[in-house]
Amino acid sequence: MTMLHTVNKSPFESKAFDTCLGLAKSGSTILLIEDGVYAATTGNSVADKIKNTSDINFCVLGADAQARGIEAKLAEGIKVVDYEGFVDLVAEHDTVQAWL
C-alpha cells in the first residue's frame, strides 16, 4: 500500500511535519499544502530533513507556494504540482492521510 500524506502547517508552528516524517513509510509521498509549503524552502532549519530523506517523494502545491511568495526559494528535489496534480497524487496512492 502506498500513502499520500498532506501537511498543511508550517514546520515552525506545529509538529505535524515532524510527526508525518516520522511515520511516513519508504515509497510514500508527502504533499505540502497551505502553510505546510514553508517546509519546502531552501536554507531553513528543516531543509536537511527533506534532503536526507531520499526514500520519500516530496511535493509542494504550487498555488500555495506562489501565494506565499516562496516559489523561487523552493528546495531542489521537491516536485511542484498544481491542483490537478494533487488530484492525480490522490488517485495514484492507495490512501490519503492529512496531518492536521
Binding site: 500500500m1 492507495d94 492521510q97 496531518w99 492536521l100
Partner: peptide
Amino acid sequence: LDDQDVVLS
C-alpha cells in the same frame, strides 16, 4: 497506518 483503507483525521 500503512495497512489501512480509510484514514480519518
